[in-house]
Design a protein around this nucleic acid. Sequence first.
DNA 1: GCCGTTTTCGGCCCGACTGTTTTCAGTCG
Length: 573
Amino acid sequence: MPLYNVRISQVFEEIADLLDIEEANPFRIRAYRNAARTLSEYHQELAALVAQGQPLPKLPGIGADLGTKIVEIAQTGSCALLDRLRGEVPPAVAYLLSLPGLGPKRVRTLYHELAITSPSHLQHAAEQGLVRRLPGFGPKLEQQLLQALAKHLDTQARLPRASVRPSVEKLLDYLLRVPGVRQVEVAGSYRRRRDTVGDIDILVAAAPGYDVPFAFTAHEDVDEVLAQGTTKASVRLRNGLQVDLRVVRPESFGAALLYFTGSKAHNIALRLMARERGLKINEYGVYRDGQRIAGDSESSVYALLQMPVIPPELREMRGEIEAARHGSLPTLLTWQDLRGDLHTHTAASDGQSSIKDMALAAHALGLEYLAITDHSPQQRLARGLNEERLLAQLDEIDRLQSAGGLGVTLLKGMEVDILEDGRLDLSAALLDRLDIVVAAMHDHFSLSRARQTSRLLRALDQRVHILAHPTGRLIGRRAPIAVDFALVLHRAREVGCALELDAQPLRLDLDDLHCREAKEAGVLISINSDAHSAADLRNLRYGVEQARRGWLERQDVLNSRTLAQLKAFLKRR
DNA sequence: GCCGTTTTCGGCCCGACTGTTTTCAGTCG
């Protein structure tokens, strides 16, 4: 069974938790947590390298010792250190760390004083009033823990960013009208345009003397006030979303925006750089000898570190600081760069709009071309088009096109199913009649890595222009397929096939790291809406945002090409 | 446990809020 980086990362996280409870050296604990994060985001499976006898790549924060442990975990599935720690502290104790208000010190107290090793133990003790008597605990904390335990079944999952947008925009609108407020921005992973968000961080610049947190917690959507002070507040909305507010003076807005946008790793790197220059950065500004010398804007802070402003989408400690220092930051793709959409559905299969309405909507968005790509016959539930209906659709597109007035050029296409063995769900003769072939998997997501890889490689050997939603993931619902992605990229480059960044908010597939890997492999990305209605075309914007997180520039994206360039690309197959 | 154009030893980001420990530790981001 393959052992993924995520699993190794989990081992390191558990070691960190248990070391925390044992009161180990905090920097040693941090080293394990940093390594866990690095591993969980690394695109190449390390266990596979180990199995092939190859050396591990040099990764930040992973030195000789952790490298040895990675090899040990890859080879044995476990780790002697973890086994030893589990012998000293029952593993369920670490679980208590996830409860709000409980950190290593209090968990340790609970374990040593009351022998509490699980959430149910804790609940029992709290109900008997034993917890409040412990040092460092009190009645309020006991109550808070009971509430958290009662709710703990609905664990805090990250939500797709698009799904929280309405709530966020409503709050921003409200805050802008609060007296004293000068400026409002969403920070955090929302501003970095991550595909999912855990909570929302809102930053406000306000004149002194106004109680903005008070107004914030009074908003009609607030269900519960978790914390409230003069400069910050934290609430849970009725829809379950946690929102944190920070209020700063206008002159600190840039430094605060930088700080609360993160990522944490990016901030730490900036602060270390500042320190090397005799400066101190905090959320109020940049200081030299106690004197504030910058901070009203983000650019003022970066300028002191001799860097241009790094776009929020890149602030993930994935080489952006080195690139900024060397003047080699990418010129990121923008919405204006997109000229068309190459994967859309109509009412002929499982969409809702007519071809004409789709075209008009695309024109209204400023697009120049639009591919109509309804489903192939195997997709029965989606009313996939058989040969007869497909040919009728092709005729209809010709008629609409010659009648004119659409504002966009239509391309004749189909989203063809990739069958379990890698064949396509359409005859070669029909494939040849299409302007563009988009191929996608819609089933057999759990094939072995080897079978899934050969399935995709075989698909790529046929007349396919775009491999759609290549990993098949659905955020929060379906994991990406197991596949040798490097091999797929290599073949895609050889045969001249693009990979899709499907812009549906629940797909966003490829993800940011895969996009970057494709770019480095020289494979074009096509950012498509996969729209099932005219309104869905607007989802393209989410695709652009994710593409930016993948460091994509205009030249990396197929549908930033002019129509003539696009046609030249399509004709090569 | 990691890391190094001042370092192979001695550092490791920084501040706000809460509850309770009557002066601050613990937690969180």
